[in-house]
């Protein structure tokens, strides 16, 4: 489904973020990308949603090189990938419901369609009773669940989470991870970038370890080891 072929990302001033990455991620996988801060985990995800372009190499998504996408195609590509960040990126002036429905409005979906989908997804993340609250009235874990709901509401093929538990305590962290596992079970490919050893060890799924911009390990049922 996703293929990184000899991908390198070099920023100006010879800062190498990624070096010669070759990856093959299949549909339905749950992949943890681990490594210390600054090893290129976030860059990998940013390349995938075309927030940045690789300096070299090819990134194939469903057998198409995403680098060749036109301005028109980029938004459509992004709708196939839900993204979650460490800092949630919610709009504080909008309610939980509005934050989630936003993603569908953007895609030009009808109002009834939106109500139905948002209701469903809020049920999955367990926030139905909070749908009229504002993000500032929620706990960190709840805010991250709103972000996940927003990322999932348009049924993307991939959910890419960049340190989603970075700001959360242990209990909330595990709740989020369980939610991600459940989402994966429902058929969405999940990419999880994290440096949290405990969570990765407990997930017990494929682990890709990065160090200094290179893949140093790729294991089917991996542990966090560098």
């Amino acid at each position: 489904m996703i293929k990184f072929h000899n991908v390198s990302k070099i920023y100006s001033g010879d800062v190498v973020a990624l070096r010669n990455i070759n990856l093959d991620i299949n549909s339905g996988e749950f992949v943890s990308i681990v490594g210390q801060s600054g090893t290129g985990k976030s860059t990998l995800l940013r390349l995938l949603i075309l927030e940045e372009l690789p300096t070299m190499g090819q990134i194939l998504f469903n057998n198409r090189d995403i680098i060749t996408f036109t301005r028109r195609e980029i938004p459509l590509h992004r709708r196939k990938i839900g993204v979650v960040f460490q800092d949630f990126k919610l709009l504080n002036k909008r309610t939980v419901f509005e934050n989630v429905s936003f993603a569908l409005e953007v895609a030009g979906r009808g109002s009834r369609d939106i109500r139905q989908n948002v209701g469903q997804i809020l049920d999955i993340v367990g926030l139905t009773d909070k749908s009229n609250k504002y993000p500032t009235q929620l706990s960190g874990g709840e805010q991250q669940r709103v972000a996940i709901a927003r990322a999932l509401v348009h049924h993307p093929e991939i959910l890419a989470a960049d340190e989603p538990t970075g700001n959360l305590d242990m209990i909330n962290t595990w709740e989020i991870i369980e939610l991600l596992l459940r989402i994966n079970k429902l058929g969405t490919t999940v990419l999880l970038a994290t440096h949290n050893k405990d969570t990765v060890d407990r997930i017990n799924r494929r682990v890709i370890a990065l160090d200094k911009g290179m893949v140093i390990r790729d294991q089917k049922e991996g542990k966090y080891m560098i």
Binding site: R72, H77, K89, L91, V106, G108, R150
Partner: peptide
């Protein structure tokens, strides 16, 4: 911030 999020969820630039 709003613009950034709109971009992330795949909003058309004109939207």
């Amino acid at each position: 911030r709003e613009v950034e999020i709109m971009k992330l969820v795949g909003a058309n630039p004109w939207f």
